[in-house]
Design a protein around this nucleic acid. Structure first.
Length: 515
RNA sequence: CGGGGCGUAGCGCAGUUUGGUAGCGCACUUGGUUUGGGACCAAGGGGUCGCAGGUUCAAAUCCUGUCGCCCCGACCA
């Protein structure tokens, strides 16, 4: 009896065949999330939400370590609040969901006999569902801040926000998404700028150390700035179709919001001054970025630090009489592992005791991206070994190692998976950042399907930037703040004269297509 | 909002042109065989065909209306 041949990969289509469709299939196969009945909104399933909880917990710890406190502000914002900062209002106006009524009334349709719920009780002033909370938090800040002694005020909020996007994609762009938004107020411009930069570094480090995603930290150009900000810092990640994803932003808002919302205080010299404010955030988009950065044609590859289960133990019990002994051995190993810690947290270990075909079970965990899989069967109990499989290696690659060795080296193994993912992503990215100093070559570059990023010297005007952006459907992803984080060869090739004007330009610009 | 398409079992679809009260694959349940493994065989459960009207002896299939969704463009964490 010959078995039917299995497909080469668990995910179809592959990345090379159809990247966007591959992405959707990974989300589905890994059981991360699904589209809901509510347009543009997703249901985040336990495995996906588990990742978010870990991101949240680990980031929250970092925020608290840097002096921030959590608070919570209303979901609904009076429309008039949005009118206070003109540029900000304009930036978000087209994607606001608006609440105009506060009651429903059951109305029976005489013709059809059906009962419909009809909104009544129109509000005197409509609310918008927060697309971001600068305005309502600013209003609170204006009440809370009276003296320079009240500064700095360092607040963070974990919340959901809503932006009525026309083209939703799970995790990357949904009408409702989860995020954190930090909002701070400072006495001086310098302090606020330092806060903005500190958070920018924090994000860079978090993506690298927790999500194994290397990013290019940089500043947005005026064209790409957050509405109402004086400076926007961003961390840009490259995913496997060579597009860019803005993975996090940190804004220096200057005194714009402080003036608009009267966030003022009495200074050390007794004069009334306006605070300098910042805001910064990352969202569930990080999960989309993580998927696109690391996953392969067999499904999700989850970096260890944010894997809901870091180690999944699969009992192999071919004969009923050995079942109990195998299960016991698995549970015992799991308990031992749970008493060990990794990156300051107890190891997250799961024993999958479901009664089902072992092969199916194994592939399920491959698709879900569990970093390490352990198989234990009767033979392993006899030899005191475990069968170890790593998600960053081929699906059929297994290593039998003495249980003691595994226990001793498990932390290093997870580290090794993390670094493998990070280095692989870095290698891929650096191979697709090219320096360019010639406008004709620049124009040619974007004709390709997935051309990767170009690095150029730049001192053009916003209008010139816009013209080039429109022509090639690209944007300046950022003006990198640290040239040492870019591939040296690209920096060299980019040179020091602006690709457009030819004038000396110390500033580099990173161009690319984005999500 | 402009241009296309679709609503039939949990999912994916066929059936609609030529009306006769519903079918396939996967999933699910049970039994068996296999199994360091995404297996196989058999039996079984589940839908009245988006919704509302109409034509007809008879409608998933024709007509009218209505609701919803998806894809392509403008906006975007």
């Amino acid at each position: 009896m010959s078995k039917p041949s299995q497909p080469k990969h668990a995910i179809s289509p592959t990345r090379a065949e159809d990247f966007p469709e591959w992405y959707q299939q990974v989300v589905k196969a890994a059981d991360l999330a699904e589209n809901s009945e509510t347009r543009g909104c997703m249901v985040i399933k336990p495995w996906g939400y588990g990742i978010w909880e870990l991101i949240q917990r680990q980031l929250d710890q970092r925020f608290k370590e840097t002096g921030h406190q959590n608070a919570y502000f209303p979901l609904l914002i009076p429309v008039s609040y949005l009118e206070k900062e003109a540029e900000h209002a304009e930036g978000f106006a087209t994607e606001c969901a608006v609440v105009t009524h506060h009651r429903l009334e059951a109305v029976k349709d005489e013709e059809t006999g059906r009962t419909r719920m009809v909104p009544t009780g129109e509000l005197a002033e409509p609310y918008v569902v927060r697309p971001t909370s600068e305005t309502i938090i600013g209003a609170a800040f204006s009440r809370w801040i009276e003296s320079y002694r009240d500064l700095p005020l360092l607040i963070n909020q974990w919340a959901n926000v809503m932006r009525w996007e026309m083209r939703p994609r799970l995790f990357l762009r949904t009408a409702e998404f989860l995020w954190q938004e930090g909002h701070t107020a400072h006495e001086t411009r310098e302090e606020a700028l330092e806060e903005t930069r500190m958070i920018h570094r924090l994000y860079t480090g978090f993506l690298r150390d927790h999500l194994a995603i290397p990013v290019i930290p940089g500043e947005k150009t005026e064209n790409e700035r957050f509405p109402g900000a004086e400076m926007t810092l961003t961390v840009e990640a490259m995913v496997q179709d060579r597009k860019a994803i803005q993975a996090g932003t940190s804004h220096y808002l200057g005194q714009n919001f402080a003036h608009a919302q009267d966030i003022s205080f009495t200074g050390r010299d007794g004069s009334v001054q306006h605070a300098h404010t910042t805001s910064w955030g990352v969202s569930t988009r990080l999960i989309g970025t993580l998927i696109m950065a690391h996953s392969d044609d067999d499904g999700l590859v989850c970096p260890p630090r944010v894997a809901p289960w870091q180690i999944v133990i699969l009992p192999v019990a071919p004969k009923p009489e050995s079942r109990e002994a195998v299960f016991e051995s698995c549970q015992a190993l799991a308990e031992t592992l749970r008493h060990q810690s990794y990156c300051g947290e107890p190891l997250r270990v799961h024993v999958d005791t479901r009664e089902m075909n072992g092969g199916v079970k194994k592939w399920e965990w491959i698709k879900k991206g569990a970093p390490v899989r352990i198989e234990i069967g009767p033979r392993d109990i006899e030899t005191r070994k475990v069968c170890v499989q790593r998600r960053d290696r081929a699906a059929n690659e297994k290593e039998f190692m003495p249980k003691e060795d595994f226990l001793r080296g498990v932390g290093e193994m997870l580290d090794s998976v993390h670094h493998m993912l990070l280095e692989r992503a870095r290698g891929f990215r650096d191979a697709h950042i090219t320096g360019c100093a010639d406008m004709a070559a620049f124009d040619d570059h974007w004709a390709a399907d997935n051309p990767g990023w170009l690095l150029t010297a730049w001192n053009g005007t916003p209008a010139q930037e816009e013209e080039i952006s429109k022509r090639h459907k690209i944007t300046i992803r950022c003006l990198p703040v640290d040239h040492a984080m870019l591939p040296g060869e690209a920096v060299e090739t980019a040179g020091s004269n602006c690709i457009l004007t030819g004038e000396p330009a110390p500033q580099l610009a990173l161009w690319g297509r984005s999500y």
